[in-house]
Each structure stands twice: as C-alpha cells, then as structure tokens.
Design a protein around this nucleic acid. Structure first.
Length: 693
RNA sequence: GGCGGCGUAGCUCAGCUGGUCAGAGCAGUGGAAUCAUAAUCCACGUGUCCGGGGUUCGAAUCCCUGCGCCGCUACCA
C-alpha cells in the first residue's frame, strides 16, 4: 500500500459492495464493506481530493423472486421495501454515499444491456446447451434454489439445489434425491436449455499480468486469486431462465435474463451515471470511469474477492473502455460472540435494532478499532460496551469535557491566551502537528484499526499533558501557565474533532458546536489541522456529555438473546445425535454394509474425459442394464486395457454430475501409499451384474 | 482429497522481508492527583510465542513434521 501512487491519480471512485435487497443490513455488512469505505471517503474528502462514493442495492436474481413469491408480493415491491430500508439504515449510520442507486433502475437496465452487447459483439460469449430441471406445472426452469429435495450427503429433507443448509455441502441440483419444485411441490423433469457463457479463460493471461502489478494488495486478495488461476478460469454462464431480471439483449434469448453476477457490478457504473444526472452534469460519470487517472477502489467482504479481483476485471477488460480496479481492500468476516453470523437463524445484530438503543458512533468506533482487516474479527457486546466506556467516554469524551468545563469555569467560556511555552507544551504541540499526517497515512493504507487506535492515542497523550501541567493548580499559582495549558488543550480538542470526523462524524459535529464554531466540521481541511488554534478570546459553546456510558443492563438482553439462539442449536444437535453415536462406534453394523450394493460390471466402452487429468468416462453392463459412470483412473489405465473387463462397482451410489457428465455408480480400486491405483477385478468370471456380498 | 489461513500474557490481539521481538489495550495490584462522564496519570507482566525436528553465529519470525480450530474448493477412491 505504501507504493500507492498518491500523486499520480486525479480522482477517486470509491464503491462498497452492492447489498442484496432480500433482507436488512447487519453488523457483518457494515464492518466489512460500508464503514471502512465511508471512513476512507470522509478522510479523502477532508484531504480535499476529488472523490465520489457510489453504491446501490442488488435487486435481481432468484432469491428475491422466491421471497417475494412467498410473501405474496411482486419482486419489485420487495426490493422497493429493502431499498428504502437500506437507504435509511445507511443514512442513519452516516454512510455518506454520493449516490445510493439500485439495479432495478432504468438507467441500470440500459447500461447493463449495452455492456452485455459489447461483450457479445466482441465474441467473448459462447452458446452452450445444458440440462436443468424444468417444472411442467409452473412452466419454468428451476434455478438451483427453486429446487428442493433430500440431501444426498446427510439425507435431510429440504435441501436446496445449490446447497444443503443442514450439512453445509454444496450441491448440484441434479444430485438431489426426490427433487421437487419449491413453488408448487411437483417433481420437475430434466430438460435442455441454451445459455450464453463467457469465456473467462481468454482473459486469464492478461489478468495474471495485471495482478502481478498489484503487489501492495492485501495478501488474502492475492491468494484467493492465485488459487483460481491455478485451477484455470473456465466458462461461466451469463444468462438464466428467469423472468425477474434484465432481459438478454440478444436475438433468440428474449425470454432469458442476464445472470445477476454479471449484471450487478455494472451497477457501479450505472449508479455513477445516475449521480452525474442528479447533479446536472450528465457526462461527469465518464471522468470517473473512462480516464486512466482515476483510482477505482472497491470495498468488499472476502466472499467477494475473486469476483472483484478476477471476474469483474475480466469483464472490464472485455469491454475495454473502463478503468480497472486500483485497490480492492477486502475485509474478512465479523463473528458475533465467537460464532458465525446466520441470518436464517437470526443469529445476527441488525443495525435497525442497534439504532433503537444506541447512537451510531460507538459502533462505528468499535467496528473500526476491531475491524476484520487481516483475519476474522469477533464482535461481543461486552467489548463494545467496554471500548465505548473506557476509550470513547473516559479517554476521548472526558478530555473534551474536562477541557471545556475548565475553560467555562475559569475563563468565562472563552479561549484563554497563549504565553511562553515550556517543554511539555512544545511536546504536546509537536504531537498535535504530526497527528494528521500519521493517522492519514494509516487511512491511506486502509489500516483502520491502527488509525482508530492512533486517534485515541492522541487523546491519551492529551490527558497526560493535562495531568502533568496541573492547570487547576497553576490557575492560582501561575495564571499565565494555566491559560497557556488550556489554550493548548482547546487546540487539541479542535484538532481531535477534525481527526475524529471520519470515524465519529456525529460526535465531531457535536464537539464542533461545543467549541462555538458555526461552520461544518466536515469541510475542515485535514492537512495542517493540528496547527490551527482558536484565537484567544473566542467564545466557546456549551459543553455536553459526548459519549454516554453504556450500562450492563443495556447490553444484557442482547447477550441473552444471542445465547439463547446458540443454546437452541445445541439442543438440536444433541437430539439429532444419531450421527454422533455412529461416529463413536468402533465399527459399522452389518446393516450399514448391506446398504452398499456392490455388483459386477463389464466395461463396454471407455474414453478419457477431455480437459481433465484423471477422469475417464465408462459405459458398463450390469447384466442387461447399461450405465455410464465417471471414474478418476485415467492416470493409471488406458481406455483400451479396460474394455471388456469385469470390475466391481457400487451400484446404488447417488448419481452425480462430474464435469457435466452423469455418473451413476462408482468403480472400486485400491490405492497404495504412492497414490497408485489397482482396479478390483474378479478371481474368475461371474455373471455381469452379479451381487457381491 | 486439494489449496489457504490461524494457534503469542487471564481476555482481545500487534509483531513486514530472521538479530532490543518477547509487545499493546483490557482486567489485576500499588501509588499520584482531584479540573473532569467515580473520569485521569504513573509503576508492576519469569508467558514452553501450539508440540517435535531442522537451517543459521542467531527464529515467534524461514523449512519439514505432528496436533487443534477455520475458510475455500473439489477430477467420485
């Protein structure tokens, strides 16, 4: 980050990940993508840089249509509700977007279609036919989440087509046992459908080269990308059979929509266009998107890394006319009391609920000083309370308070004059002078934790200065010294106010008023803010308590609520402890073995699966029944040496799709320590399909 | 199964490319002070830096290995 060429760019375009409009905003969202971005933007504004902050809701896609359907409203009604909810929550937390748009906006539909068309016209898309479940009664293809069934792994009913909530394994919709349509409950049929895929592989080289130039990026970002490159980028569907979304602007695809993952990030561009329209300079958006000297900064959570650092840049490269991300400060996750957030279990802290009890700044501070920068962080109400009380209230707030109270009582609420400086005064002023530079550096490098800490540290130093100078004593024994001390303390308060504004915007406004200043604290220049004292005689405003202490009884109900959710879950895993018992048992019972249907099969044909190292596609004869299986033995056997042989297969294994090929069964082989495979065969011939016991 | 991360004082964590790196905050103990939100300031930490090997003049920091958590992802033994 140190190398971030701060001089070479002229303007900053900062974005936060587009929140999905299917539920309210919780702590994790705020800590990962919104608060760090807002603090950064506020800081940059104070540096008087040309910066805009863009965001908006992501409103298309399957989950939204499902939720809307269940609630008996239209998707549009649903996203209208959540757009308003998000907008309101962010405003109340002081997240200072220049524009908070939405992907259902007309300008986005238009922008996304144009973008799509460019990619299409440049031949980066290719048509593929795939198999997908189709519900004949609803008359539509079922997206992964629209199909439910029994999980092939844990056998729990109610698993979704993309993932089983119970055991957490990710699924292909075709793996589900007894699949049914989530909407009407009927059994769907497999049907072919055409889709357009983007050939991401064509961008891999360019992307790798580009990313090599990003040495200062966070390690976690680079590592995730490296992993993807190692595997190699493949093709990715960019269209879907769905009605809620942006129609594909290509002939023959009118009844399909652009896949949300493709269309949503284009929202960054549309939202910038909308911003330009709103300020009455419709072409301004191009300054930010089409000029090389723009620094594009995407704040995201780690779940979005590969997307923003690989796929989205590939799209931008494909399009060709827009800037690429310059910085991707990705944050890790925030746990709550040691456990992962879970919206479905309501194990979360919702921001709306937080605001019913507490002001925004204490949370902004706590999430800054405890930001999930390099690893997952943990939120606890106890620590939140403790940090509010001891750092914001006792150290920062109390310093402001003792200074202003002192000035009001001793100097009639006016700034006393400054006289000769002693060593302590000099030292305090020196610290003040370098504070903006020091904290600014940290903001610049996305080191929010350290910046928040450094801010409180200024107040710590100031408290020590106050103590050491003992103005309550010098006011009697050496009036000039007392005046000088308080004069400087007021200068500290003023500086602190500017320095705290990015993290604690609401509190900064309060202090600014207490100082008797009428202009806007957020307009104050950061540079040199440690060296601009209030002049002697300036009349101060009325001080008030900046940060209230948070009492145990205020956080206790929240703690209890979270605990009870955890306790409930534990109870459930206990009661479904059948699995655990089985795990503890030293062996399996006969019935367990009997469930595995092993049979003799004759290999009818064999062929390597293209573009794979290990896979071979086999047709086998199970005594009248012919099947296709996929086996990972290509590195050990040639197709020719398998044809005609009798092998052993698990006949009742759940079918699976491996690299797009259905596999109905699994052959058996022995693996030695080197990883060499030896196929199981028969000692003497038996009938094809014979059972093995 | 593969890839990646993490494991440092009672708690939460800093410690980048190896040599004042054994640290900070909180909690705890003692003291100073009393302007202030019963706030502030000062002093005090003998921790097997997860275990075991190795490289090195020297490792919490690099390599190997074991254990324990966690994340991502699978090409069906």
């Amino acid at each position: 980050m140190k190398s971030a060429d701060q001089k070479s760019y002229q303007r900053l375009l900062v974005t936060s990940a587009l929140p999905y409009a299917n539920g309210p905003i919780h702590l994790g969202h705020l800590a990962g993508a919104y608060l760090p971005a807002d603090v950064y933007v506020r800081y940059q504004r104070a540096r008087k840089r040309d910066v805009i902050f863009i965001c908006g809701t992501d409103e298309h896609g399957v989950p939204i249509s499902i939720i809307a359907e269940k609630a008996g409203i239209t998707p549009q009604q649903l996203v209208d509700r959540f757009w308003a909810d998000h907008f309101d929550t962010f405003s109340r937390f002081g997240i200072s977007f220049d524009n908070f748009s939405r992907t259902s906006a007309a300008i986005h539909h238009q922008t996304a279609k144009e973008f799509f068309k460019v990619i299409y016209d440049k031949n980066y898309l290719v048509e593929r036919t795939i198999q997908q479940f189709y519900c004949t009664s609803c008359n539509r293809f079922l997206a992964d989440r629209f199909v439910e069934g029994t999980c092939p792994h844990c056998k729990q009913a109610g698993a979704r087509g993309d993932q089983c909530e119970t055991c957490g394994s990710s699924l292909e919709q075709t793996e589900l046992i007894d699949p049914y349509c989530k909407v009407c409950g009927r059994t769907p049929v497999l049907r072919e459908t055409r889709h357009l895929f983007i050939k991401l592989n064509e961008f891999q080289q360019k992307l790798e080269t580009w990313l090599k130039g990003k040495k200062h990026w966070k390690k976690n970002v680079l590592k995730y990308c490296r992993g993807w490159f190692k595997k190699g980028l493949g093709e990715r569907a960019v269209t879907r059979d769905l009605s809620w979304g942006i129609p594909v602007p290509v002939e023959g695809y009118e009844d399909k929509v652009i896949y949300v993952w493709f269309e949503a990030p284009i929202g960054y561009i549309s939202a910038t266009k909308e911003w330009a329209d709103k300020i009455g300079q419709p072409d301004r958006w191009q300054d930010y998107w089409c000029r090389d000297d723009t620094q594009l900064v995407h704040f995201i959570g780690k779940d979005n890394i590969v997307f923003h650092a690989v796929i989205w840049p590939a799209m931008l490269m494909g399009h060709g006319q827009f800037v690429l991300p310059a910085e991707i400060p990705a944050n890790e996750f925030l746990n709550i009391h040691g456990e992962k957030l879970s919206t479905s279990r309501n194990y979360a802290v919702w921001l709306g609920e937080y605001l019913e009890q507490f002001p925004p700044d204490p949370l902004r501070y706590y999430l800054s000083v405890n930001a999930p920068e390099t690893k997952d962080a943990d939120f606890t109400w106890e620590e939140f309370q403790q940090r509010n009380n001891s750092e914001l209230a006792d150290i920062l707030g109390n310093f402001v308070n003792r200074t202003l109270t002192f000035a009001r009582k001793q100097y009639a609420g006016r700034v006393p004059p400054c006289h000769d400086l002693d060593a302590l005064d000099e030292s305090m002023l020196a610290d003040l002078k370098q504070a903006p530079e020091k904290i600014g550096q940290l903001f610049e490098q996305f080191e929010l934790r350290k910046a928040a800490y450094a801010l409180i540290d200024v107040a710590r130093t100031a408290n020590k200065y106050f103590n050491d100078q003992e103005p309550w004593r010098s006011v009697r024994e050496n009036p000039q010294k007392g005046q000088t001390t308080i004069h400087i303390c007021i200068q500290v308060v003023k500086t602190l106010t500017v320095l705290m504004a990015p993290i604690l915007p609401f509190s900064a406004e309060k202090v600014w008023k207490m100082l008797g200043l009428a202009d806007d604290v957020h307009e104050q220049p950061w540079d040199g803010c440690g060296e601009r004292p209030l002049s002697a005689g300036h009349e101060l405003g009325l001080e008030e308590i900046l940060f209230k202490k948070i009492e145990d009884k205020q956080v206790q109900p929240e703690i209890d609520r979270l605990r009870s959710i955890l306790a409930e879950d534990k109870g459930q895993t206990m009661s479904s402890g059948e699995n655990q018992k089985r795990k503890q048992a030293p062996g399996i019972v006969y019935d367990d073995f009997a469930r595995v249907e092993l049979r003799v099969a004759r290999v009818v044909s064999a062929a390597r699966v293209e573009k794979t190292d290990k896979l071979m596609q086999l047709k086998i004869d199970l005594g009248g029944e012919e099947r296709q299986i996929v086996a990972g033995i290509a590195q050990h056997y040639q197709p020719d040496e398998l044809i005609g042989r009798q092998i052993v297969v698990v006949a009742n294994l759940q079918p699976a799709i491996v690299r797009g090929i259905e596999s109905k069964g699994m052959l058996l082989a022995a693996e030695d320590a080197d990883g060499k495979l030896a196929l199981l065969t028969l000692d003497r011939p038996a009938a094809d399909g014979a059972k093995i016991k």
